[in-house]
Amino acid sequence: MTLKNTADRWGSVSQLLHWLIVLLILGLGVIGLVMVELPKSPRYFWVYDLHKSFGITVLALMVLRLVWRLFAGAPKAVSGTPHWQHRIATVTHGLLYALTFAVPLSGWLYDSVSGLRPMRWFGLFKMPKIASPSQELQPLVRDWHEWLFWILIALVAVHAAAALYHHLFQRDDTLSRMLPGRRRASSPVPEIR
C-alpha cells in the first residue's frame, strides 16, 4: 500500500486520517451527550477540558487532511458509477468537510463567548480566544454547536449507509478502497479443479 492516493484507491495516510477522525467524532459525540448530565465537580471540568482538547485535535487533523488531499489527490469514481451518484458523493464529501470544520470551530467559539477560564489543549498550552465574551451570543453559539453536530452525524450516517449499499448490493470497491489492506477482486477468481 502506498502513502499517497492512487487513481483507484485511497492511500494509507488518507485512510488513517479518515478513520481517526471518524473515531474522534464518535467519541466526542458520546462525551458531549454525557457531559451535560454530569454534576458540577472537578470531574465535570476535566471531561469538558478533554472534550475541548479532542475537538481542537479534530480541527487540526482536518486541516492536515485537507492539505494532504490537495497534495495527494483523490481516487477517480469507481468504474460504472452513474454521474448522478458521483455528483451526490462530491456534494456529500464537501458538506462532510465543511461540517467537520464547523463543529469544532463552533465549539471553540462557544468556549470563547462563554468567558470561561482559558482553554488548554490537553493541559499543555493555552488556546487563544477567537471572540470576546458575550452573554447574548452564548446560548445562540451553543445551539449552533449542537445543531451542527446533529447535522454532521446525520450526514455521516447517510455516507456510511451509501458505502455499505455499494459494498453489499452494488458489490463495487467504493468501501474497500478506504479500508486498510483490503482489495476486492474486480472479477471473480476462477475455481481450480
Rank of each mutant, 00 (worst) to 15 (best):
S112Y: 04
R65Q: 06
T81Q: 08
L33G: 13
T81C: 00
H93G: 05
T92K: 00
V91F: 12
L109K: 05
M127A: 14
R65E: 03
W46N: 10
Y97M: 06
R87H: 07
D111Q: 14
Y110Q: 14
G80R: 01
P39T: 12
K126P: 00
F54A: 05
E37I: 00
W68R: 02
V113N: 05
V67T: 04
S106P: 05
K76D: 14
A77S: 12
L28M: 15
A98D: 05
R117H: 13
G29N: 08
D111N: 15
S114I: 03
F45G: 03
L124S: 11
V30I: 13
S53N: 10
R117M: 12
P75K: 03
Y110F: 15
I31H: 01
W46H: 11
L95W: 13
A60G: 11
P104M: 10
D49L: 01
L66P: 00
H51G: 09
V91Q: 02
M119Q: 10
S106F: 10
Y97K: 06
T57D: 04
L28K: 06
M35W: 09
K40R: 15
S106G: 10
T81I: 04
L50V: 09
F125G: 10
A60F: 12
V113S: 12
L99E: 03
V103C: 07
I88V: 15
F54H: 02
F45H: 14
A98W: 05
A60D: 02
I88N: 00
P39I: 11
L59A: 10
P82K: 09
V63S: 03
G123Q: 07
F122Q: 06
D49Q: 12
V34K: 10
V63C: 12
S79H: 08
M35I: 10
A72M: 02
A102G: 13
K129S: 14
D49F: 02
V113F: 04
I56M: 15
M119W: 11
M127K: 03
V30E: 01
G80K: 03
L59M: 12
P104G: 10
V91A: 12
L33E: 14
T81Y: 01
L66F: 07
V67D: 01
F125Y: 15
W84Q: 09
P104T: 11
I130D: 11
V103H: 01
V47H: 04
Q85V: 09
G107I: 02
S79A: 15
I130Q: 07
T100S: 15
A77F: 04
M127H: 07
